[in-house]
Design a protein around this nucleic acid. Structure first.
Lengths: 195, 195
DNA sequence: TGTTTTTGAGACACCGAAGTCTCATTATGG
DNA sequence: CCATAATGAGACTTCGGTGTCTCAAAAACA
């Protein structure tokens, strides 16, 4: 239980590896540990020194990305204000951490059950506002389509953010336009409607 | 050029392998050739007999899935009738071949450029109606949001169909409800609107 | 500067999947 | 029913990624 605070150098190296892992694996699952080490500008030995084996690394990267996404989405304060506004803030926050999200999105285990603002399949902390909560609130207020399941809407949210990130990644969409495009699509779909 | 028509048995086996490959790889890239062989109810030797190495198999499976998707979407006759109706038929057709689509969707090479009704990055056949064509027609007629890029709308289409397939796969959505849910979401997004 | 920490390069064994081959067994079709 | 086509099981080799270890160089720190 007496965890030495870890030197500044070490924690910096650790973060570099975790970030590289998320980034590389987001673009290519099945990437090699050597690939990740290279992206982190670190020797393969060093990587193994911090993370004994692949599983440990991926687990840590998942947990880390969760924290990053959580931090970002927490700032969106999705339990505050009108659901529509809150959702827009949430989408912006998600796009901001697109690569982390893409990584999590691509991981089979995480993909299973996806509560966005809660740490994994742990028991949901009632004090932390969830995406599902926001969606249900919006449905209750008649803002979000009540005929669609809340989980479905959440899946769509993830899918659209991911698609936006991917489009930007491929240069099909300008970085700065992703958020507004995703929001517009998420809210209205693709069909033109009067008012 | 003199390709022997191939015996009925052989072509049946070949199809079984290709189908199994698409199905298995859709759910798990990185699946083993042994996994695929098992799913195809075929010995690993037989698989290698038909497809010398993994690359050849995957390439063939991609091409085959393309044909399947193409066949299905061709029946939707997306160049006929009102764009909205045509799009609904297209979505239904895509959902019908969801696993093939999921397989293609998950393949890095195919994911690059995605003309849906044309055979790969080959030069587009002007006689074959494309998804992009349908979208642009819809935009011209004012049915689809003209402020969204046609490619973006296509990406969204794929993403939603994929998400729907995945939801059904996980039992989150009943099979029979996928098409209508995807259509509804695609057209209107998730926000409730007056008329 | 001297000491300790941290690192990178390389050598090595290990393991699982891929690919090759043989041979006996089972279908298929004339 | 026989000849041939097709298959499956298994033995075997190859190959690439993984994980372990050593040692000298570089960086951090006091």
């Amino acid at each position: 239980m007496s965890d030495t605070p870890e030197s500044g150098t070490r924690s910096r190296t650790r973060r570099a590896i975790l970030g590289a892992a998320a980034s590389v694996l987001a673009r290519d699952r099945g990437a090699t540990l050597a690939d990740i080490a290279e992206a982190a500008q670190v020797g393969r030995s060093t990587l193994h020194r911090y993370f004994p084996d692949r599983k440990v690394l991926v687990d840590a990267a998942v947990a880390d990305s969760f924290r990053v996404v959580e931090r970002s989405t927490a700032e969106a304060a999705i339990d505050q204000g009108p659901p529509l506004e809150a959702m827009r803030r949430l989408i912006a926050a998600m796009v901001d951490v697109g690569d982390r999200l893409a990584f999590l999105f691509g991981d089979p285990r995480v993909l299973e059950e996806a509560g966005c603002s809660e740490p994994d399949p742990f028991e949901p902390d009632p004090s932390v506002p969830t995406t599902i909560g926001l969606i249900e609130r919006g449905q209750a207020e008649g803002v979000f389509d009540p005929e669609l399941g809340a989980e479905w809407i959440q899946q769509v949210l993830w899918a659209l953010v991911y698609t936006g990130w991917e489009a930007a990644e491929k240069g099909q969409l300008p970085r700065h336009g992703v958020t507004s495009t995703v929001i517009r699509t998420f809210e209205n779909g693709v069909v033109t409607r009067k008012r």
